[in-house]
Amino acid sequence: MPSVPADVPAIRSALLGWYDVHARTLVWRAPPGSRGRPDPYRVWLSEVMLQQTTTPHATPYFLKFTERWPTVSDLAAAEDADVMAAWAGLGYYARARNLLACARAVAGGHGGVFPDTEAGLLALPGVGAYTAAAVAGIAFGEAANVVDGNVERVMARLFAVETPVPTARPELRALAGSLVRDERPGDWAQALMDLGATVCRPKSPLCGDCPLTTWCAGYAGGQPERYPLKLKKAERPRRSGVAWVLRDEQGRVALVRRPDKGLLGGMLGLPTSDWSAAPDTIPPVDADWREAGFVEHVFTHFSLTLDVRTGEGTGDFVWTPVEQALGALPTVFRKALERGLGAFSG
Rank of each mutant, 00 (worst) to 15 (best):
T214Q: 14
D248Y: 03
C216I: 03
K233S: 13
P283S: 04
P271Y: 03
L179R: 01
A191S: 06
Q190Y: 06
R42N: 06
E235F: 05
V48K: 06
A101W: 06
V318A: 11
T66W: 05
P211Y: 04
E142S: 04
S273K: 04
W87P: 12
L179N: 06
R184K: 10
N145E: 07
K261G: 00
D194P: 11
S3N: 12
P205D: 04
E338N: 01
A14F: 01
R35Q: 14
L264G: 12
H297K: 09
T54S: 13
V165E: 14
L304M: 13
R334H: 09
H297P: 11
W69A: 02
E291C: 03
G262P: 00
Y92E: 03
Q250C: 03
G33T: 09
L16R: 11
E171R: 12
T214I: 08
G128S: 05
A156Q: 01
L206A: 06
N98K: 10
V332T: 14
R169L: 07
S303G: 15
L158S: 01
P283W: 01
L50W: 05
G340V: 00
R184L: 13
R239M: 14
Y130H: 08
V8L: 11
R29G: 08
W244F: 10
E79Y: 05
V72H: 05
P5I: 14
V165M: 12
D280T: 06
V146I: 15
R29H: 09
A325M: 11
P5S: 12
T55K: 01
E323R: 12
G89T: 12
D260Y: 04
D286Y: 05
A10G: 15
H301K: 15
P56Y: 02
Q52E: 04
S345I: 10
P330G: 10
R35A: 15
Q223H: 15
P205I: 00
A30L: 14
Y61G: 02
T167F: 03
S345D: 13
Y93I: 10
T163M: 11
P283N: 02
V48W: 09
A76V: 06
A278I: 00
V322W: 09
A243Q: 13
K335C: 06
V242R: 12
A94W: 12
G17H: 00
F302P: 04
V154S: 06
N145R: 08
A94M: 12
F140S: 08
E67A: 15
P185Q: 01
G91A: 02
Y93M: 05
M49H: 05
D148G: 14
L229R: 15
Q324T: 15
A30R: 15
R309A: 06
D148R: 10
L179W: 11
G266E: 08
S13Y: 03
A6L: 14
G311P: 09
V180L: 07
S3G: 09
R181G: 14
G186I: 10
V83F: 03
V127G: 11
T66C: 06
E79V: 01
L158I: 04
P279C: 00
P115M: 00
T213W: 07
P70V: 07
K233R: 15
D209I: 08
T55I: 14
V199L: 01
Y130P: 13
A325K: 07
A287I: 07
L124V: 02
C207A: 05
R95D: 11
V21T: 14
G327K: 13
V43W: 02
L231E: 15
G89F: 05
P40M: 07
V27N: 08
A277T: 15
R173M: 12
A119H: 11
P115S: 00
D194N: 08
C216S: 06
P60V: 05
Y219H: 08
